[in-house]
Design a protein around this nucleic acid. Sequence first.
DNA 1: AATGAATGAGTATTCATTCAT
DNA 2: AATGAATGAATACTCATTCAT
Lengths: 194, 194, 194, 194
Amino acid sequence: MGKKTAIIHSAIEVFQEQGIEKTKISDIVKRAGIAQGTFYLYFPSKLSLMPAIAEVMVMKTIEIVKLTVDDEATYPKQFEQMVDAIFKVNKEYYEILAVIYSGIASTEHIREWESVYAPFYEWISQKLEAAKIAGAVRQSIKPERTAKIIIGLIESAAEQVFLYAQHDESEADRQKEEVLDFISHALQFQTAKG
Amino acid sequence: MGKKTAIIHSAIEVFQEQGIEKTKISDIVKRAGIAQGTFYLYFPSKLSLMPAIAEVMVMKTIEIVKLTVDDEATYPKQFEQMVDAIFKVNKEYYEILAVIYSGIASTEHIREWESVYAPFYEWISQKLEAAKIAGAVRQSIKPERTAKIIIGLIESAAEQVFLYAQHDESEADRQKEEVLDFISHALQFQTAKG
Amino acid sequence: MGKKTAIIHSAIEVFQEQGIEKTKISDIVKRAGIAQGTFYLYFPSKLSLMPAIAEVMVMKTIEIVKLTVDDEATYPKQFEQMVDAIFKVNKEYYEILAVIYSGIASTEHIREWESVYAPFYEWISQKLEAAKIAGAVRQSIKPERTAKIIIGLIESAAEQVFLYAQHDESEADRQKEEVLDFISHALQFQTAKG
Amino acid sequence: MGKKTAIIHSAIEVFQEQGIEKTKISDIVKRAGIAQGTFYLYFPSKLSLMPAIAEVMVMKTIEIVKLTVDDEATYPKQFEQMVDAIFKVNKEYYEILAVIYSGIASTEHIREWESVYAPFYEWISQKLEAAKIAGAVRQSIKPERTAKIIIGLIESAAEQVFLYAQHDESEADRQKEEVLDFISHALQFQTAKG
DNA sequence: AATGAATGAGTATTCATTCAT
DNA sequence: AATGAATGAATACTCATTCAT
């Protein structure tokens, strides 16, 4: 594993454990097993790590979502799987996701966020486009815009459940169900056609 | 105005102008017109201000939403006004909202977020309940859960537009329209009854 | 109990618990149950408390020594009782005695130490004078000088045992015995006369 | 000279000049010619310097005592030289010794005192052992215990004279003489053998 | 490319002291 | 005499960044 990757993964762990503000560069390099000066060969500052971390996490999210969603299934089923996957990732990594979000928000790197999320938006967008062509969803939706809305919706719901509220398995499940119901009606799944 | 309130309001302004990280306690007290030591009589640290600020901002949001929404209008109209209002607040205060979010997320005060938002959830929840009784929306919605989903949805969409993307007036309007469309279908407004 | 006494006794307790440096005026007044400003009506500063505290403690020491020493007993016996008493006080109050010593030493009040100890020196001095007249001790001793030597000797031995070393009952006893032996030979008790 | 040694020696000087409380870390590093942050690489706080300083001072004391005491002289003479030496060191460094004592006493480092003094105790102890074997002193003395008593006795006497009382050359000399007399009788020097 | 000791500017925090009540 | 909220000067301490090796 390259030093750069080591730094990113070390930082993910340390940020998760102590939060961004309390984390010192020295903590990151210590865990990464490299010298302090080496850090600066790869990143100019602590906050400049955030986009790299965010990218890793979003990539991981996309990967899990893609693995979970069965392209052969009906669209309602696929969206259900998508919600499941995103909730699962948020449950597992809620701390680091919160950290990314806050870290991104508190830097001038905020504009990179869009490009990091772009592949995710793109993937959902194509899915919606296909569903639209298949007549499986409401024809008035605009795939690109709706993709952003859906991801924002699912992730904010997952955050509410896993980050700000008490972790309660059944509560999470019920909220997830409501989210799916909400989306289903918003997209107006044409059950006849699936 | 009490010293505590003075500190909170001063902090909101300064955080908005320079961001949390670059803000020194000395900046806050200078604007509040109090001595540095006095700050510590009310707050133990800079980050402990966050829940107090968050509360003020959420209260302000609720206030604006309530002022904007006409209780006599049809429900679709009311939700349109609500989306308008939340987008407006997010546009106006996107910096400070980002700051609150990141500030909250990066502290141990994260659990207080739920209670800060509670009155907002409650208000929407009652609105949905009434709409349900009036037969104006889909009967299967669960008001409390859906309230959270809607606020999360609108705010995440507003953040995407105002915080992470380029500020583009028309782009924001078009995304707002799509959000409203999404919600309308999700709630299944009964246009016959309004 | 007067406020002044309350302050002194509160300070003794707090100094003992947290040490002089870490003790704030606010800690002292809190325990004394008085207002912060009131402190300054009686003492100009934290360190100006030291002589007052020292006096209380030395007085207490003298009192215990006097109570323990039986004026009717033989001189060797009396000195044995004296050593016992001083060791006992040092064992019981070693923390506060250390505090006084360090507190005194670190201030300009250091010169008051002599006067605080004066009555103790005086008492031993008279005892030695009487013993000398009675022919119970070496005639070449100079009571005033020897009094200081003896108190310094006993207290330093007690400190070594109770403050700097591990508290070990039997160890303390054996060292005490050696101290007494040392003094006995130094004073050259005339056992024939007692 | 290593940075650590530089810090210790600088601190000794500055403490001596201004006392512990009034000394700022910045004073110490300034004189040591190092950066402020460097201080914290070696010591976590001002008071944690104390054991290190104490060790240096005790070592210096031992060194001077060893230089002053002539191993070939009679034992009474050697002890006289020892008292002389200790009084001399206390006179010369009474400020810094007071500072060490108070500094040690007011910290959690108090237990380290024992080990710092150990070599001094050891040296006297061996001296007494040899004297005992030579039949030059009372056979009932226990060298280790008596070593501690003697050092405590001499140092407390020296402190009384140089620290708490008015510095008066002849007064100091007379007290020193009495101390020597006291010790001589306590040890029961066998003048016949010397 | 890698190191890590040294740096020192920058800031949070403390707490003795004041003073209007 | 007593109060205790407010003060702000004084300092300890942190930690990102550098640079000689």
